[in-house]
């Protein structure tokens, strides 16, 4: 069985987005983890979160580039689609910034 790319190639496009989302948003975790991510997202000097925010922005602007099946499998969101999940994530983490890609 092939391992998911976000585990074997953590520098690949969208790997940081998936890894961070899995670490803090997976349903096996409680709300404390999601709250941790909210606080972490406010750090301007954090390399991982900088990459995460850039990949989240890219995913919202160009949703066709997002590895949706991998994201769905890794994060297990119940928003119905990757796009809805990413929009919720941006809204929750960066509430003062408009959602990228939204007309």
């Amino acid at each position: 069985m092939n391992e998911p790319f976000w585990q074997t190639r953590p520098d690949a496009p969208f790997a940081t987005l998936i890894n961070v989302a899995r670490t803090y948003c997976h349903p096996e975790l409680d709300e404390d983890a999601y709250e941790s991510l909210r606080r972490l997202a406010q750090r301007d000097d954090d390399d991982e979160m900088t990459t995460f925010k850039q990949e989240l922005r890219d995913g919202l602007v160009r949703p066709e580039k997002v590895p949706q099946a991998e994201l769905s499998r890794a994060v297990q969101y119940d928003d119905g689609s990757a796009d809805k999940f990413l929009r919720r994530l941006w809204h929750d983490l960066y509430p003062d910034e408009p959602v990228p890609g939204q007309a």
């Binding site: 092939n2 790319f5 997976h26 096996e28 975790l29 404390d32 983890a33 099946a69 769905s72």
Partner: peptide, 29 residues
């Protein structure tokens, strides 16, 4: 799979849960 959380004392980490998963790579949705 091992997921982690803060310890009760907020001074380190412990295992939040451990479960078995078929973590596939490429997958059709």
């Amino acid at each position: 799979q091992y997921f982690f959380r803060s310890t009760r004392e907020k001074d380190g980490y412990e295992i939040a849960t451990m479960y078995v998963e078929l973590l596939r790579g490429e997958e059709q949705e």
